[in-house]
């Protein structure tokens, strides 16, 4: 019995040590992703759909990893100020207006972007609120 207690104690300590090895950024990523999912459901999902597939040629899908990567610094601007210009997603032209959502904070936008760029087949990692601060200041 004593042995059992000892073993379980040792393994518990080991697990603690291993999980604490997860660095700060990984924890932040998890937090951003979880919050971003909820924000996405409330602010983006109606149009872009649960699976990020969009709707016909009216609403573009969020599955074009190349586009998302190339425009990473501008994605926040699209959310806050809307999108009026023509874009090419998965080799298809989309030119309907995307409405602006100007009551989302920089943090909200960072979290939404972490969710979008790491869902629907995308896997682009972390995007901090500090990066969002800078990128949103430089919106054209």
């Amino acid at each position: 019995m004593r042995r059992l207690v000892l073993y379980s104690l040792v393994s518990f300590v080991l697990v603690c040590v291993i999980t604490s090895c997860k660095n700060e950024q990984e924890l932040a990523f998890g937090r951003y992703f979880a919050n971003g999912k909820v924000l996405y459901e409330n602010h983006c999902q109606n149009c872009h759909s649960k699976e990020g597939q969009g709707l016909g040629l009216l609403i573009p899908p969020l599955t074009d990893t190349v586009f998302l990567k190339a425009n990473k610094k501008e994605l926040g601007c699209f959310i806050r100020f809307g999108l009026k210009k023509e874009i090419k997603i998965n080799n298809t032209v989309y030119n309907e207006n995307m409405p602006a959502d100007d009551h989302l904070s920089d943090m909200d936008i960072a979290q939404i972007l972490v969710y979008v760029t790491n869902s629907f087949g995308n896997n682009q990692g972390y995007y901090s609120v500090l990066e969002a601060n800078t990128d949103l200041k430089n919106c054209k």
Partner: peptide, 13 residues
Amino acid sequence: CNSICPIMHRNML
């Protein structure tokens, strides 16, 4: 409309 219409028409489609 960007509230429920896209969902409705995704389903109608």
